[in-house]
Design a protein around this nucleic acid. Structure first.
Lengths: 232, 232
DNA sequence: ATTCGGTATTTCGTATACGAAATTCTTATT
DNA sequence: AATAAGAATTTCGTATACGAAATACCGAAT
């Protein structure tokens, strides 16, 4: 559907790989990125790695330390709060727009998304569940017809993924989440903008609350289970 | 106020220069960026230029053409609509948050901002007026205490600047705009969240309408007066 | 004159090279 | 043994080099 782009440069590929590593927790918050090591591991020169890190830095996924190199940006509870606060307004708005602008052919896609989400729950596959969650929300952004919403949220998803894995460890939360998704889709497909928007608002509110609970079990700073495997 | 960052790399400096050139219209939409030429002009090697362009590409300020190099991304009316649609929700929300979280010491800063805006109108200095406008809105983002709002909007301002210069050419529009700003600040300083938010919503709505009128004088695609000077 | 084919040139992406700053290691001194 | 100075090493930012792809140029054939 999009225009062809047969050439992905090494810079872009390295960027995607590093961002994915950050999101998945393979690279932990605070951990330093070593250009030589990354270059060697990926079998490229340091040049594209350096460029990719520049982009990560511009987008706040890594930060300068003052010393040598950059480290993965720590995400504190305040940032999670900000993201959810932001989503609590943007997501219902996107949903409202989507209800107005959705095409007649959206039914099958909605069904496929919901089916995949439930399948991921059944399979107890967190990665798959995360992907399904992202797909659900990004589809609504697309239906909203507003590319700026899509772009703005894209900047936040990587951060959110870091916390969502924690929340979705609890099967009940995952189930609740996809019940919400079902409700939202139903309202969208019947063109009920108010109901869809309200359901989305509630959904984000619940997610925010669960995130807060999971990440601050004793009122402390967030704890992220970043299992970080580094093969020789 | 921010943490010290004594080292700005060449990549970051080049990025800022190029972004500014794009925003100011010195580099026109559709125009190609020549790495060698930019490097020569800025007295740096092609390497930091190449990296800076990678960042610009990731942030959608330039795009690949399929042929050689990148061009400045064209901004069509649909994108302007999307931005203003987005702002119509985010700005009132930021204003509401700001009303709740604003400090007691905000008065002098508000006065300074409003004074500077009126001074820029009097001086008929468009660049100065744009800077004042950005400062007004960014201050509210800051007061909102939500860094995600700030970051999301930062991605959109460069695009908006391209159109705002056109709108603010009309002194009446500029005057109207700063009357709005005054109203919003007054409501904020008296802690009237509803009034501030409503005033902001109206302000964005008016700006959107004016932008549409200025950019599509005869229902066509937007016309940007990019005077682009290229000295030897 | 126009068009086609081939050669020269431009220009990009990536690799490699190099100097500087920071870190680590070593060793001498107390 | 602890510490401080300085040498060795790491590692980054940036410059330069190089190959490949795209573009421009140019002459021959129609």
């Amino acid at each position: 559907m999009d225009s062809i782009e047969p050439k992905r440069t090494l810079v872009e590929q390295v960027y995607d790989i590093l961002l994915d590593a950050i999101c998945s927790g393979e690279l932990c918050p605070g951990e330093r990125l070593n250009q030589d090591e990354i270059a060697t591991r990926l079998n490229v020169s340091r040049q594209p790695v350096n460029s990719a890190i520049s982009i990560l830095k511009a987008n706040n996924f890594v930060r300068d330390t003052g010393r040598r190199g950059v480290v993965v940006t720590e995400v504190d509870m305040e940032q999670y709060s900000s993201i959810y606060e932001f989503r609590s307004v943007v997501e219902p708005f996107a949903t409202r727009l989507a209800a107005d602008r959705i095409g007649d052919d959206a039914g099958p896609e909605a069904q496929a998304i919901l089916r995949e989400g439930r399948a991921a729950i059944k399979a107890r596959d967190i990665k798959r569940l995360l992907a399904a969650d992202v797909r659900f929300h990004e589809t609504i952004y697309r239906w909203s017809g507003n590319h700026v919403i899509e772009a703005s949220m894209r900047a936040n998803w990587p951060h959110m993924l870091r916390s969502m894995a924690e929340v979705l460890r609890d099967p009940a939360s995952a189930q609740q989440s996809w019940d919400d998704h079902q409700l939202i889709m139903d309202a969208l497909l019947t063109g009920n903008a108010d109901a869809a928007s309200t359901a989305m608002e509630r959904h984000i509110g619940l997610a925010m609350e669960k995130t807060r609970k999971v990440l601050t079990p004793n009122g402390k700073e967030p704890v992220l289970h970043g299992a970080f495997s580094r093969g020789k």
